[in-house]
Amino acid sequence: MIVVRDVSKSFGGHLVLRPTTLEFPRGRTTVLIGPSGCGKSTLLRIIVGLVSPDSGSVTIDGETLTPATALALRRRLGYVIQDGGLFPHLSGRDNVALLARQLGRDAGWIRSRVAELADLVRLPTAALDRPPGAISGGQRQRLGIMRALMLDPAVVLLDEPLGALDPLVRYDLQEDLRRIFRDLGKTVVLVTHDMGEAGFFGDDVVLLGGGAVVQRGTLDDLITAPADESVRRFIMAHRLPGVATEGGGA
């Protein structure tokens, strides 16, 4: 379980996150949605300890995040960075295996684990041995996911992990990731812009807006009982079938 308590953050006087308290229950997938710039990535980066909050605290599975505990906590987290964040000097394989090697994992184990993950995310083996600059954007995203899952972390944070994939691959990968997360009981926080994806993954959707939680519930709750006008407009903008649009006049 991840507990974010009274966390706030501003950048250069501009308030990005109002004091926010959120719990992400163990073994469940929570989806963060909200308009661009509302602070979704910032919240994830605070949880990983990349950005220190102005106030409040973060606790992961009972352990509070401090500079002293950050390193050990990060090794138990999988974090998929919004723009991939692959190291250009390493091949895809070396990117995925970097920490495992550093921790002294057996080379044979690493090899088979990488093969297993490549299979899972449907990454062609040829892409594994090329530098990230020489593969497609979708392949890079899949490598980013592989790297996060490499050491089988109990907690996985994903920042728009599937944005650059074509619909067919994305469809398959959504299925596979959801199966992994559910079967292995991972605690997952997933940021997405896509309402369909939000509904598919999340038993629990958190809508952020203006640096605060605007509404939390199932996707159905958000659609059928929007907490305020902003939620209604955010939902409407996705032109989901069966949801009234401005000019629809139902």
Partner: peptide, 16 residues
Amino acid sequence: AHLREAALALGLTPWE
């Protein structure tokens, strides 16, 4: 910056 962050997020020590 995002690559520095990636290295940090992975749980590498400063020396690593």
